[in-house]
């Protein structure tokens, strides 16, 4: 059983005006005082109640800064909730900031191992998958080169191949569908669909209404850190498009 449950979850970033202080400033400019360096509270998520069950594929939409990515990172366990409780059951695999977290001096093949271990693989399980990952990247002999010399597209190919090689129960995706060149994009889309069939539960953030409509069966509209609407994906998309003044059209057929 995989599942996510949020009970009255809020997340609040406390941002100081001058973010990183030095010990010198601390003493000399009195950075510790609230008047010199005031704290602003950013309420990224406010009193969210959400339950996602087995088999649901949730598409999250909303304008920039609505808290979509923050919600994913909260579910992934990277941000702790400021208040409320979060229950997550199942092995998580997350696809966000996938181009980050490479060891620049190590080769592509070595990075496959490091990333694999980061996602909880063991030497035995990664050995079985490494060849498959390498093949998916289509990078061939470039894989023995240090990642330092890779182009951005090559890096994304590698990252995507590693991140999607695990068999997660919960899949968290943040805007990664537009990766690589056209050929790889199609391949990536195919891989995502396969993964979604294996994963029991998915939460996906995207601004691409077509892919949301095609891939998700439940929609969640976030606005200023609050749930504005939750329901069937198509209905949520229609409501969202109406609110931004775009004529609604049927994405199911368009995609």
């Amino acid at each position: 059983m995989a599942g996510i449950r949020l009970d009255d979850v809020s997340l609040c970033f406390r941002v100081r005006k001058i973010r990183r202080t030095t010990f010198k400033d601390f003493l000399v400019s009195r950075m510790y005082s609230k008047t010199v360096n005031p704290v602003t509270e950013v309420r990224a998520l406010q009193h969210l109640n959400l339950e996602v069950k087995d088999g649901e594929r949730v598409g999250v939409l909303g304008h920039n800064g609505a808290g979509k990515s923050t919600l994913l990172k909260l579910i992934a366990g990277i941000y702790p909730p400021t208040s409320g409780t979060l229950h997550v059951q199942g092995r998580i695999s997350s696809l966000f900031d996938i181009a980050l977290g490479f060891e620049w001096d190590a080769s592509g093949l070595e990075n496959i191992c490091y990333r694999g271990y980061l996602q909880g693989e063991t030497p035995r399980s990664i050995r079985a998958k490494a060849a498959q990952i390498a093949e998916f990247t289509e990078l061939g002999e470039f894989l023995t080169m240090p990642v330092r010399y890779y182009s951005a597209g090559m890096m994304i190919r590698l990252a995507f191949a590693i991140a999607t090689a695990v068999n997660p129960e919960i899949l968290l995706i943040d805007e990664v569908l537009s990766v690589g060149d056209l050929a790889f994009q199609q391949k990536a889309r195919q891989r995502m669909l396969e993964m979604m069939q294996q994963a029991r539960l998915m939460v996906m953030v995207s601004h691409d209404m077509d892919s949301l409509a095609r891939m998700c069966n439940r929609g969640l509209w976030l606005d200023h850190g609050q749930i504005r609407m939750s329901g069937h994906m198509d209905e949520v998309i229609q409501a969202y498009e109406r609110s931004v003044g775009q004529p609604a059209h049927d994405h199911r057929q368009a995609g």
Binding site: A76, G77, I78, S94, F96, D97, L100, G101, F102, L118
Partner: peptide
Amino acid sequence: ESYIRQQPM
């Protein structure tokens, strides 16, 4: 940092 931002460890 990039690992910290990706995976809770």
